[in-house]
């Protein structure tokens, strides 16, 4: 890519950093240049977030409808999947799957709930009294 073709589009990196890109200068030699972003990537990232938000909303509704426990909602909210949550809580994946059932969740001890609360960066109360913003 030639230096003059390097995009300087708006991206989420604004006010945080710019990225280093290797480009060819006028003499045909490589050098580095800073870029604020590339629209092609910005849209890909936006779409990914739209999808995350869609899934989170869906999980919220399922939780309000009593189909899944709040663990299923916070899992989506925190962009986790079963292996990641298993890593943070120390539970096995099959245990987490069970805990996602509302009737099993209702019987969980505070000690177990605490492990989830820590993994999600929330309080036990927020986990017990599901009232998402």
């Amino acid at each position: 890519m030639k230096k003059k073709h390097l995009p300087q589009d708006k991206s989420s990196l604004e006010n945080f950093t710019r990225e280093v890109i290797y480009v060819k200068n006028e003499d045909g030699k490589y050098e580095t240049e800073l870029s604020t972003g590339w629209e092609t990537k910005t849209v890909a990232l936006e779409n990914a977030w739209d999808e995350i938000n869609r899934r989170t909303e869906e999980a919220k509704q399922e939780c309000l409808d009593g189909k899944i426990s709040p663990i299923g909602y916070y899992l989506e909210l925190r962009l986790m999947d079963l292996p990641v949550l298993a890593g943070y809580t120390g539970f096995f994946k099959w245990q987490i799957k069970r805990h996602m059932k509302p009737n099993v969740f209702a019987k969980l001890s505070d000690k177990k709930l605490q492990r989830y609360a820590e993994a999600f960066d929330i309080t036990i109360n927020e986990l017990k009294n599901f009232n998402p913003s």
């Binding site: 890519m1 990196l13 990225e19 890109i21 290797y22 480009v23 490589y30 590339w38 092609t40 990537k41 849209v43 890909a44 990232l45 779409n47 990914a48 999808e51």
Partner: peptide, 28 residues
């Protein structure tokens, strides 16, 4: 399928992963 393609582009071009970018670094 569109989301999958977006995922390729992010793995390819996003900060610190750079697929196209890596080719330029290798050329350098």
């Amino acid at each position: 399928a569109g989301l999958f393609l977006g995922q390729i582009v992010r793995m390819q071009e996003e900060i610190g992963t750079g697929g196209g970018g890596f080719r330029f670094i290798y050329a350098a």
